[in-house]
């Protein structure tokens, strides 16, 4: 049975289509990144998975149940985008409060160790720094030992050091065979910390696979040159070209076959090609190409 299934799910807010006919499934035990620019539908998807939002069409299921049933069974834990703590309570009190709401929670010590909070147990929430609060929120998300952990841009407010520690904590938790889905708009995070990357843009899934597959799919290479005032028409028809971008007089051609594209460029056009550069695409190029195309 899949951990998470979206079956033709759409969600609209009035006229705005936040999630547009998304179908996907995630196997248990995987760590999956939901990668997309702001407003792509990441948070909406996560809130639907938690039963906080209802899909307008389609169904979402978690371990074969509805999201509300999975939540009631204590199978879900999450770090949502906004979420403050109760200022008057200590770290231990907050974690204990959430632990005791779940049927089979983790041990307090284990939570503290995973979230790197052992030194802060007695600290009141209003005396915590931003990064420390995030760690507490991570602790609350894992406190109930949920089988599915959802993280909505968990590192948004963290500095580099905190980020490193955070991903280490996340790996520690995922290592127990749990399913983790995290939303991010940082490419490196998706690349480094997940088994699979689902790229969404404007509510649609535009790519799905390992980071390496996505790079390859989009057209592994880019051909860049100075176009100047010359017309860009016809560039997209050159052999191998998957996408064309023109910005500030520079044309970038994404291509799956550099040789064919170059041959076409020199023999098939009368363009004056200057400052020619060739590069292998990185995930960032792939990401930009994907989210722009749609």
């Amino acid at each position: 049975m899949n951990a998470i299934v979206f079956d033709h799910v759409s969600k609209d807010y009035g006229d705005v289509l936040a999630v547009d006919d998304v179908s996907l499934s995630i196997e248990p035990g995987k760590t999956v990144a939901l990668l997309g620019p702001n407003g792509a539908g990441k948070s909406t998807s996560i809130n639907m998975l938690l039963g906080l939002l209802r899909p307008s069409r389609g169904t979402v299921s978690v371990f074969g149940r509805t999201p509300r049933q999975a939540v009631a069974a204590g199978q879900m834990g999450a770090m949502l985008q906004s979420g403050q703590l109760i200022p008057e309570l200590s770290v231990k009190e907050l974690i204990d409060l959430v632990r005791k709401l779940y049927p089979e929670p983790l041990d307090l010590d284990e939570i503290l160790k995973l979230a790197d909070l052992t030194d802060l147990v007695k600290r009141r929430a209003n005396k915590l720094s931003g990064g420390q609060s995030q760690r507490v929120r991570f602790a609350l998300a894992i406190a109930g030992a949920p089988k599915a952990l959802l993280l909505d841009e968990p590192t948004a407010a963290m500095d580099v050091e905190s980020r490193l520690r955070f991903w280490e904590s996340m790996r520690g938790y995922a290592a127990g065979g749990r399913t983790v889905l995290f939303a991010t708009h940082y490419l490196e995070e998706a690349d480094e910390h997940s088994d699979r990357v689902i790229v969404i843009a404007r509510g649609k899934v535009v790519a799905d696979g390992t980071a390496a597959q996505i790079k390859a799919d989009v057209g592994g290479h880019a051909v860049r040159f100075t176009l100047g005032e010359q017309p860009a028409a016809g560039l997209d028809l050159l052999p191998g070209v998957t996408a064309v971008e023109v910005a500030a007089g520079t044309a970038t051609l994404r291509t799956s076959d550099t040789d064919a594209t170059l041959a076409g460029l020199y023999r098939g056009t009368t363009l004056d090609v200057r400052d020619l550069q060739l590069s292998g695409a990185d995930l960032e190029d792939a990401f930009l190409a994907l989210t722009r195309e749609s």
Partner: peptide
């Protein structure tokens, strides 16, 4: 915080 509680059992 309410949402945090709403996603517990």
């Amino acid at each position: 915080w309410l949402r945090q509680l709403q996603i517990t059992p």
